[in-house]
Design a protein around this nucleic acid. Structure first.
Length: 202
DNA sequence: CATATGATGGACT
DNA sequence: GTCCATCATATGG
């Protein structure tokens, strides 16, 4: 693990213009920033999942509807939609193929008390570990759908921070999907406590 | 309009 | 581990 020489800089749009699994791994260790009511909150991305276009039975892009259509948006834009009563935050990847990265967990670093007030939980661990918990702590809803995360005046931004080595990244099958691919597409920071579930693929 | 379906979370045994 | 409240979509009558 090392700190990126570009620490603190906004990741450019081209960062997202790769396959979902590549972008997912690269996003681990980066900073997710949320600006709301002249306040700032966020933390380090610790857990993500990659979703592809066609040939991915778990992806909404393989089905009809506006969520699937949105996965053909420009890279680096948010994609927010509701599942099981929770808003889920994704970032759209490649311009050529449908795909997105689901942000599942972050380690709270900035504006922790503000996030706590929005979530109403005592434990820091329960603040932002889990895709639904994360969006509630950062107050992300349909209002935040389609935002470019590479623009400095956006309300959701991703900044450069850490660069992780391969061996610091654990992988497993995606959580909660009914039909998964025969390949692990969930990635998380191995030694982080801020991960919704541990466990790897054999 | 009615109902089924989740990329979930929280309460509970 | 199990159960079920949750609610935006999709789909069928």
């Amino acid at each position: 693990m090392r700190v990126s020489p570009n620490y603190g800089e906004i990741l450019q749009q081209k960062f997202y213009n790769e396959s979902p699994d590549e972008v997912a791994k690269k996003l681990l260790g980066k900073l997710l920033i949320r600006v709301l009511d002249n306040k700032v909150m966020g933390g380090m991305i610790t857990e993500v999942e990659a979703y592809f276009g066609r040939d991915d039975p778990a992806s909404r892009a393989s089905k009809k509807g506006k969520i699937g259509d949105a996965m053909w948006r420009d890279p680096g834009h948010t994609l927010v939609y509701m599942v099981h009563g929770n808003w889920l935050l994704n970032i759209v990847t490649t311009e050529r193929e449908a795909g997105a990265v689901l942000i599942r967990s972050i380690e709270p670093l900035i504006g922790i008390e503000y996030m706590r007030s929005l979530r109403g939980v005592k434990q820091k661990k329960l603040l932002t570990t889990g895709p639904g918990r994360l969006t509630r702590a950062l107050q992300i809803t349909k209002e935040e759908d389609g935002i470019p995360v590479y623009m400095s005046d956006s309300s959701i931004i991703v900044l450069d921070y850490l660069i992780l080595d391969e061996e610091e990244i654990e992988r497993s099958y995606r959580i909660g999907v009914t039909k998964d691919l025969p390949h692990p597409y969930r990635f998380y920071v191995k030694y982080s406590d801020y991960v919704s579930r541990k466990g790897s693929v054999k």
